[in-house]
């Protein structure tokens, strides 16, 4: 009890201040979601009237297919997370383990490509996908598979870069042993590396999942149809009308949308911490 007071009090003080900083905006989102007028501005920090209208609207209004949006987001983000990590891990493995000409240049190129201010790619991607639409309408502009392909491209660089760091941290001795046993590079990858790296792959998938889940600038151009939209597009739609914004449903919708993310995050906390640093802490 004494030690707690003497040595840990300041630690608790700092932690509490930071927690307040973190929780304050979140409390306000909840407040505006529960307020009948649904505005982001406060007149008082204690709600006078509580209404669940904003929440019920999400599930009852025919104008807001909230659950469909949620499903779309989970499917798109899920597929991108899994596929991009599967494909990215192979490249990362090669960068980390194989010897070949131009490896250093390749890695630098990969890094540089990430740094290009991609905002104007918007036009280029739009042009490419509208051309794809003209001969393959199911994977072109305006379709979920089309958006998925574009996201895959975008996720590739980051994932290869992150994964390469993780692969470096897996001890070399294991694949050396496999090599002695006569295994080819491909076998080493599938039989030794993939099982070893599974937790790390899961963490990188989660990061891509979140990135994809939050993306709205491309998605709002691609997913026009009401029932094809993702949650981020739907939410952004509430607040970027020509003149008016609907903060109430936006706040309520955001809260529900964050629940799956927070749940995954909290349950994988331990993995994430070790996963994030595994790449940078050698050995």
């Amino acid at each position: 009890m004494k030690r707690w007071l003497k040595e840990d009090l300041w630690r608790h003080a700092i932690a509490l201040v930071v927690c307040f900083f973190v929780l304050f905006p979140i409390y306000l989102v909840i407040l505006s979601a529960l307020s009948p007028t649904g505005s982001l501005q406060v007149t008082s920090f204690i709600p006078k009237t509580i209404s669940f209208h904003n929440f019920s609207q999400l599930f009852t209004s025919p104008k807001i297919p909230y659950l469909v949006w949620m499903k779309n987001s989970l499917v798109i983000a899920g597929v991108v997370a899994i596929l991009s990590v599967v494909i990215g891990a192979a490249s990362a493995f090669a960068f980390s383990r194989l010897r070949f000409k131009g490896k250093k240049q390749g890695l630098q190129l990969l890094l540089l490509v990430q740094m290009f201010p991609a905002i104007l790619s918007l036009s280029a991607v739009y042009v490419i996908m509208s051309r794809v639409y003209s001969f393959a309408p199911r994977i072109g502009l305006g379709t979920q598979p089309g958006l998925l392909l574009v996201y895959m491209g975008g996720a590739m660089g980051v994932n290869i870069w992150l994964l390469k760091g993780f692969v470096d941290s897996i001890p070399m001795e294991l694949d050396e042993a496999a090599k002695v046993d006569g295994a080819s590079a491909v076998q080493t990858y599938w039989l030794i590396f993939v099982p070893l790296a599974a937790p790390v792959l899961a963490v990188v998938s989660l990061l891509s999942f979140i990135g994809t889940f939050n993306e709205f600038i491309l998605a709002r151009l691609f997913l026009v149809d009401m029932h094809a939209r993702t949650i981020a597009v739907g939410l952004q739609g509430f607040i970027s009308g020509q003149y008016a914004s609907n903060w109430g449903p936006f706040a309520a919708g955001s809260i529900i949308a964050s629940i799956p993310l927070i749940a995954i995050f909290l349950s994988l906390q331990r993995y994430i911490i070790s996963g994030l640093t595994a790449g940078s802490v050698k050995g």
Partner: peptide
């Protein structure tokens, strides 16, 4: 608690 901002949709956090 501290992990929360990382896990919430950033579009919402920024607008709030």
């Amino acid at each position: 608690i501290i992990i929360l901002p990382y896990a919430m949709p950033s579009i919402m956090s920024i607008l709030i």
